[in-house]
Simulated assay, not measured.
Amino acid sequence: MDRRRWLKNSVLLAALPLWIIARKVQAATWFASAFEAKQTAQVLAALKATAVPVASDLSIDAPQKAENGAVVQIELSSTQAAGKLRSLRLLADANPTPLIASFELGKQVLPRLVTRVKLAQSGEVIALAEQGNGQFTQHRRQVIVLEDGCASSEREEPFASSMKMRARMLESSPLGNHVTELKIIIVHPMRTGRSKNEDGQLMPAHFMQLMQVVMNGQVIVDAQTGTAISRNPYFTFYIQDAQVGDVITVNWQDNRGLEGHGQVTVAV
């Protein structure tokens, strides 16, 4: 089943009760050639992003020095208005697979988001923005990493997932009026395939690949994620013109075909 059909099904499912949604999520195509690429140049080639200029409107808020590379909070933002950018992508040049995540943003979503990532070693974190006309721009920031966050040891635990969500309308915000802050935490191991268990054996990769945010029956964020999103993925998005009482649904799927679903109502 192709990606467009999955998008259509997710939109239709947003209006259904959660117990029905949980049984009917459809598969989509994960952009393997970009996420499995070993070098940033290969990622850019897969995305057809060549000769990408540096943009003054893009910024990356990240620590100058990350003591624990397994959990590094990063904020990507652009000064452009909602609906002007087609997507924001996050890369880490020194990671074994540089592409961390891709976010296609609907016209209601401000080009600003927060997530937590794994950084293997010191290097450049890259924000890649795709304009509405298909052109790309970029911004880079150097981050020093003191401890590898991509290949640490982990305990083997039975898989059990859950989700916490909060959608709060901001009364006063530098982002403007009528902005809703959506926070999402998904319980998931996000194993890279390079970590080892307590016996020193490699643990198979197990990570979330697809996530959609649907509001009032419309997909407003269509995300793809790789192995470098931190354990228990965390995201913050900013939505314009949502109303108190609007229903937001989040659906995700991982590399093993497992799925999760959550729902929240916009509140003050």
Rank of each mutant, 00 (worst) to 15 (best):
Asn251Ile: 11
Gln263Phe: 00
Arg191Ala: 05
Gly217Glu: 09
Gly200Thr: 11
Phe136Ile: 07
Ala120His: 12
Ala34His: 02
Gln80Val: 04
Ile144Lys: 14
Gln138Arg: 14
Trp252Tyr: 12
Gly106Arg: 11
Ala41Ser: 14
Pro158Cys: 06
Ile100His: 10
Ile126Glu: 13
Val213Cys: 04
Val213Ala: 06
Val125His: 09
Thr192Gly: 07
Val266Cys: 09
Ile220Asn: 08
Gln42Asp: 15
Gln243Phe: 03
Arg86Val: 04
Leu18Asp: 13
His188Pro: 01
Met211Asp: 06
Ala120Pro: 00
Glu156Tyr: 05
Val264Gln: 10
Lys48Met: 04
Phe159Gln: 03
Arg140Phe: 02
Thr227Met: 09
Val221Thr: 10
Met163Lys: 05
Ala267Asp: 04
Val221Asn: 02
Pro174Val: 11
Gln142Met: 13
Leu258Ile: 01
Ala101Phe: 01
Leu18Ala: 15
Glu67Phe: 15
Lys48Asp: 05
Gln212Ala: 11
Gln108Ala: 15
Met169Val: 11
Ser153Leu: 07
Ser152Glu: 08
Gly69Val: 07
Arg112Asp: 00
Leu88Tyr: 11
Asp57Trp: 08
Thr249Met: 08
Lys196Asn: 06
Val125Glu: 06
Thr50Asn: 12
Ile60Gln: 06
Pro174Tyr: 10
Pro53Glu: 09
Ala62Tyr: 00
Leu175Val: 10
Asn232Val: 00
Asn197Ala: 02
Gln224Met: 11
Ser59Thr: 13
Asp246Ala: 14
Lys118Ser: 12
Ala70Tyr: 05
Pro189Arg: 01
Ala28Lys: 02
Glu147Pro: 00
Lys118Gln: 11
Arg86Glu: 12
Gly260Met: 03
Leu12Asp: 13
Gln138His: 08
Ala45Cys: 02
Trp252Ala: 14
Trp19Gly: 02
Gln135Cys: 04
Met1Thr: 12
Arg3Ile: 06
Val268Tyr: 07
Gln212Asn: 13
Glu259His: 03
Phe159Ala: 06
Thr265Leu: 05
Thr97Lys: 10
Ala55Lys: 01
Asn232Asp: 13
